[in-house]
Amino acid sequence: MEVLKGLSRIDVTSPSEQIIQQLRALIAQGVIKPGDRLPAERALAEQFGVGRSAVREALLKLEFFGILRTRPQSGTVVEDNMTSSGISGLIANMLSIADPAPADMVEARRILEVQTARLAAERAGKAAIAAIRAVHETHVAAVAENRPSIEPDVLFHLEVAKATGNEALHSMVSVFAPRIISSAKESGTCDAGRATQALEEHATILRAIERGDADAAGHAMHRHLIMTGTRYSELDAGT
């Protein structure tokens, strides 16, 4: 219809984005200053009236961009090597790229996680491999019992990243986690047969890491993320 052609998509701000915007306003007003410690995650969730996962997603994004830092025994604090105006500007820039399209996210993950899988195969010790296998088995059980499986799916990728022993890589992969979970729940990419396909792809990655075969691990991760992108495309196309 001609009327429909004249309408454009309405962008609804996510809860995590609204949380970030509110924190930015408090920083700009000087209520929150560089070096200040933020309230606990539970207290923030209660004050915002949202689930803790939304708060966690917001804090992870802010930490990834260097605006927040988690200190042992001190909790989450605002970075103290920038001015309030500098932090506010950085958040404004971050918000413009804070909610990537699934295709963009999958492409970025391919660039990052293929190498992560290779390094995990080269470096993972017995404990790290056991941790990857444990979360994989949790994923297997969830799919077999027809329970939600996106959380163990994402945890598999986080354990692979952790197995590299590189905390920067682990943090970079972690920042994708909340958005992957929300996208999967919205689109249904982990429903029914699609979850089984992802599970089989994970098993191939795990076997390569267990063998210490970096080339096979990288190839398996690349194929898995290509297939993940395909699953998103099929759902967008309504197939």
Rank of each mutant, 00 (worst) to 15 (best):
T138F: 00
T138V: 01
A121Y: 02
D153A: 10
I132E: 06
A134N: 15
A134F: 01
A131E: 03
A144T: 07
A142E: 11
V140C: 11
V135T: 15
A120S: 08
V135C: 12
A121T: 03
R133I: 01
A134H: 13
T138L: 04
P148Q: 08
A117I: 03
E151K: 04
E145K: 14
K126Q: 06
I132Y: 02
G125K: 01
S149N: 03
V160S: 01
A144H: 10
R118M: 14
L158K: 05
V140A: 08
L119Q: 07
I129H: 04
K126Y: 04
F156R: 15
A142C: 13
E145C: 14
K162R: 14
I129P: 06
H139K: 00
A131R: 13
R123H: 14
A161E: 12
A117D: 02
R133Y: 01
V160D: 12
N146L: 04
A134I: 07
A130R: 13
V143D: 07
H157Q: 05
K162L: 05
A120V: 11
K126W: 07
V143P: 15
A128K: 14
E122K: 05
A163C: 00
A120H: 05
L119A: 08
N146Y: 04
A127V: 03
A142Y: 11
H136M: 01
A141M: 13
T138K: 08
R123E: 09
D153T: 10
E151H: 02
A144R: 06
V135H: 11
A120I: 05
G125D: 02
V160W: 03
V160N: 04
G125M: 03
L158W: 09
A130S: 15
A161M: 15
A142D: 10
H157K: 05
E151Q: 03
V154F: 04
L155W: 12
H139T: 01
L155V: 08
P152C: 02
A163N: 01
A131M: 10
N146M: 09
V140K: 10
D153N: 03
A130D: 15
D153S: 08
A142N: 09
A121Q: 09
R133C: 00
S149G: 14
E151V: 05
A144I: 02
A141W: 14
A163H: 05
H139A: 00
E145Y: 02
K162G: 15
R147W: 09
H139I: 00
